[in-house]
Amino acid sequence: MLLLAVDTATPAVTVALHDGESVLAESNQVDARRHGELLLPSVDKVLAEAGLKLDALTGIVVGVGPGPYTGLRVGLVTASTFATVLGIPVHGLCTLDGLAYAAGAAGIEGPFTVATDARRKEVYWARYEDPRTRVGEPAVDRPADIAERVAGVPAVGQGALLYPEVFTDARAPEHQSAAALASLAVERLAAGQEFLPPTPLYLRRPDAQVPKNYKVVTPQ
């Protein structure tokens, strides 16, 4: 087994190679505005580090968000294109699930919250019973509006660290890691569990407004 995991749903551009036993190589860069530029060189770098070529892959793992869409799409279209050319499966995973799994590796047992930055003073978030068990679907909210629901438990992710007044027990990990996402995928594959399709979790509608009635140009 050789999995390439990529996630571009958060400010992190993160890539990892996993052979089913362990992580062979990984690349983590945080730059919210350069996902498009950074992703392919990162893939090239982890493959070179492991001394492997892309055609050795047996599967692709991709974070499907939620996350800012422009960056998120870079990872998804890259994963889908690789999978099509190589004729291998692409396994979608909720980005927050990757962070929860990393939190587990960092020693958090649960229950806890994962929150990432949704910009516009909102967070993408979900609650977890334990590092492998999410409670319900991810959502996007203003931190103040969910204060009661996330009170009393630890929280991980940049969204938690950004709003300490709501997430009073915010901790590391701050950023998504493709290595954690790959490890989670390996577990799920072994357990025969389902994956998500490689399409974005769009939790917001496009900001498009149907124009108001035609505006008169003649001075009144």
Binding site: G36, V43, D44, T70, V77, T78, T81, F82
Partner: peptide, 19 residues
């Protein structure tokens, strides 16, 4: 359009790289 271009550029890179 920046976001629209990015989808095509990312796909083209992945396609070229994989081939």
């Amino acid at each position: 359009l920046a976001g629209a271009l990015l989808v095509g550029v990312s796909a083209a890179k992945a396609y070229a790289y994989a081939l």
